[in-house]
Structure formats: C-alpha cells, structure tokens
Design a protein around this nucleic acid. Structure first.
Length: 432
RNA sequence: GUGGACGUAGCUCAGUUGGUUAGAGUCCCAGAUUGUGAUUCUGGUUGUCGGGGGUUCGAGUCCCCUCGUCCACCCCA
C-alpha cells in the first residue's frame, strides 16, 4: 500500500494546534486594529523578477531557495519567499503610496526551499506590518511597540529586543569597503563560509557563528562608528522613544539583515528557547525599496514575525488559548429523541449566540455517550430519552467533576428541566 | 546544500550476540461492577517493524539505496 505523504517541509496543522493559531490571529488582528493598521491580502504568486529586484540577486533566498517555475505562457513565476516585496508592488500598483501614509499588515504562508528543521519549514507563515510614507524615527518606535504588545498579549516572555543601525546607503557602502579591507588582512584566519561571503555579502560575516571569526571581528570597524550624522540622529531618537515607552533593548552592532533592501534601523526579537531558530520577529527600515521597484522615493519600515516560531514559543511557555471545548453535549437515546435532539440543538443555538453545543450524532448507549461527553470537555451533558421527549424536558447533568471529587464523594448535580427553561440555565455557562 | 542521530500499533515505547505466529502501556470497542460519566475487572480490534534491494537456512535486528523526522551548520521569520 503506497500511501501519499505531504510534500517535504509542507505541514498539516491539526486540532488542537489550530486553536492556538486562531488565537494568535485573533490577538494580532485586535492589536493591529488598536494601532490603526489595515489588513492587506496579497497573492502567493508573483513574477520572479520582483523578488530578485527587491530581496537582492545574490542573496541565498533568490539564488537557491525560491520555488520558481515557468507558467504556460513561459513567464517565470515564484511562490513568495516573504511579504514585503508584494506589499510594495501592490502599493505601487494601486496608488497606495502616492503622496500618502499607509499602515498595513498581512498574514499568510511564505515559501523557501530550505532543509526543514524545527521552526523552519518550506511553507511557513508570517505576520507582518509595513508603514509607508513616514520617515521619522517615531514610526520605528511605534512598530516596535506594536510588536512588543503583540508578543506580550500572546503571553510570551523572555524575549530580547536587539537593535542596530545600518546607516544610509552611502555610509553603508563606505563601511562595507572598510570592513572588506579589514577582513582581507585576516582572510586566511576566517572560516570558509566567511571567506566566501567576504566578497559577495561582507556584512553577513558580522553574524558568523564561528568563534574564531568572531574573535577577529572584535577589532573590526563597527557600523556604529561609521554612521552618517542623519542616521545617527535617527538612531538616537529611536533609542529615546523606546526608553520613553519603557521598552528594553540591547544594541547589537553585529546585527545585519539577509535581505538587501534594509538600511538604517534594524531590529530583532530573539529567544534562546527555540534552539538555532531563535529569531521570532525581525524588521527594519527600507527607505530605498519603493524607488528601486519603480516608485518615487518613499520612506518605509516594517517587520515580519514567524508564526510557527511564535506557536512553538507559546507551547514551550504554556501560553493558553481561550477554551474552545463545547459548553454542552446533548445525548440522545433512541430514534425519536435523536431527531428531536437536532431540532432542540438548533433552537438552543438560536436562543444563545456563542453557545458551543455538540449534539451526539452517533447514537449508542448512554454510558458510551456520557463518556464521549466527558472527553469532549463539555461542562454539562443534556440527556434526551423517550421519557424526556414525552415531557418536553431533558436531564441536565454536570460533568467536569474533578473539583468535586477532591472534596469527597458528592453526587454530581443533576436536574430535570423543560426545553423552555433550558436557555436561561445554559446561559450561565457562556460566562463561566 | 553539508555533517550527525533516529524511523516498531492512533500515541509513548520494549524487542537480548540474527532464531517459531512481533510485545507492553495508553487510546478505542464490547461486557461485568457502579449511581447513567470517574475508578476497578474481563475480553477484543489495530502493525506489509518507513519503503526498496541485498547477505543468510532464517532479517525488526547486518549491508546498500531511498523517503521522512530531529539536531547542528548554512539560511532566516
């Protein structure tokens, strides 16, 4: 028997995990709304050239990680590896960026052909925010504050905010030259990966994990020292703004980005609870990208968070999602009661919006039904047999007797109610 | 892409130096007890031992290939 398997790195998300995902999205939507951000929904497929132009031709993402293919017309298309490029493209295409300020957020799957690992998948999900048309450091502060609130409201703890500035394009070019000159003097002592990056993407040498390379970097020039006056002022204002809001941060002069479009502010929320995939949310300023994609110069900042990693952290820290178990479980004994149970169920749902009612559809003995009711997490079982049907009533039996049992053998509460009395009794469950 | 560990019932795992018909717990189902759900007892279902090939009289166990998971590198959210 040759059963199908899901494609490597493309995962199913099942209950009860989906409850965590729903909770995360609900909290995110609420948080973005609290800051006046509008949701933008973008396609999964774009022209390959869009990503090559925005992310950078020589980045690993574009060189070897995109799912690219030719469609029937021979156009080269790619599944999006990130959201910012599409967001800018859509903004330009619909005039959203024309002399305007925009606060946008998005959520959805992204695709990168990497070797899967915990917290790293080929289809993964990001939650992102982008602000266009505001160049001042206050927006950087706002975006970081938003991300901080989001993670706090998800119940996450122990995250570190790292901060750096990559300066203006000119300052960065000068710094890059200085860094390359420095590293070339120590080239023979660098690890192989760093030697390879020395000429393709020298800034990435800064976050090399090789201890030997980090040793050499101790004496390397830093971007901080090379900052242009304007970027320096921007960075100072950002630091001040974060302090004003009581948001703690650590300056990490080695913090760089893998995507080419970033400049000035860059930041990352990291954790040590997730092994090698410790970055949970990252972003920065990318004032040059809109122009690079054919628009007029437009300042922009944004960040993206890895949903799988947030979920992993929520689980590790036992963050809880709101209880989604049914409030009540309706057991029906026999044919006529079973038909009536479906009708009664509809009436109860009409009467009590928000009620989570599971009607047993499988039939079976009462003992078995009660067992299922118990397992479902419901707080009460409603029992409908022929006798009850006759009297237009049900027996209401409370489950979840764990607390009672601790206090000794108490007969669990059971009472008989008419259908008319039910809604009033059950409404208490909605607010318990 | 590189290196390493690991794949045995739905889940967690045991399976001795290769040796009959592959096991436990849990879950699920049925029955008994019970107060109609917990508990207890009895019985039952479930596996091409990830897949393919090889060595052998004989492979879950050894070898090769392959797929998958995990860890680190790499990359990044």
């Amino acid at each position: 028997m040759n059963r199908f398997q899901s494609v490597r790195g493309f995962n199913d998300i099942l209950p009860p995990d989906t409850a965590l995902w729903q909770h995360l999205h609900a909290v995110a939507a609420r948080t973005f709304a609290a800051y006046g951000y509008g949701e933008i929904r973008l396609p999964l497929l774009e022209q390959t050239a869009l990503f090559a132009r925005s992310i950078g031709e020589v980045t690993d993402i574009v060189e070897k990680e995109m799912f690219s293919f030719q469609d029937r017309e021979g156009d080269s298309l790619s599944l999006r590896p990130e959201g910012t490029a599409s967001c800018v493209r859509a903004g330009l295409e619909h005039g959203l960026l024309h002399n305007q300020q925009q606060r946008l957020w998005y959520a959805g799957p992204m695709f990168r052909h990497e070797r899967p690992q915990a917290g790293r998948y080929r289809q993964f999900h990001q939650l992102g925010a982008e602000v266009f048309g505001i160049g001042g450091p206050e927006v950087d502060v706002e975006l970081i504050a938003l991300s901080a609130r989001l993670m706090r409201d998800l119940g996450l703890r122990g995250l570190t905010l790292e901060l750096n500035s990559l300066g203006s394009a000119e300052a960065r070019a000068e710094y890059r030259a200085a860094l390359v000159a420095f590293l070339e003097r120590h080239e023979s002592a660098l690890d192989a990966d760093s030697r390879r990056r020395l000429h393709s993407n020298p800034l990435r040498v800064l976050d090399s994990k090789s201890p030997q390379t980090q040793e050499i970097l101790r004496d390397a020039p830093t971007m901080m020292d090379a900052l242009d006056a304007e970027s320096r002022a921007h960075f100072e204002a950002l630091r001040q703004g974060l302090s004003d809001l009581g948001i703690a941060y650590a300056i990490n002069p080695r913090l760089v980005r893998g995507l080419d479009y970033y400049g000035r502010t860059v930041f990352e929320w990291t954790t040590d609870a997730l092994g090698a995939q410790g970055t949970v949310c990252a972003g920065g300023r990318y004032d040059g990208l809109v122009q690079q994609l054919g628009g007029t110069p437009t300042p922009a900042v944004g960040w993206a968070a890895g949903v799988e990693r947030l979920i992993l952290l929520m689980k590790a820290q036992q963050a809880t999602a709101p209880d989604a178990a049914p409030h009540a479980y309706l057991c029906a004994l026999g044919e006529a009661p079973q038909r009536e149970a479906l009708r009664l169920g509809e009436r109860l749902r009409d009467a009590l919006p928000g009620l989570r009612l599971l009607v047993n559809a499988g039939g079976g003995k009462l003992a078995a039904q009660l067992k299922r009711a118990d397992r479902s997490g419901a707080r009460v079982a409603l029992i409908l047999g022929d006798a009850e049907l006759e009297a237009a009533s049900v027996q209401v039996k409370s489950l979840r007797a764990g607390a009672e049992e601790a206090n000794g053998p108490s007969a669990s509460a059971q009472q008989r109610l008419t259908w008319a009395e039910l809604p009033a009794q059950l409404s208490g469950l909605l607010h318990a």
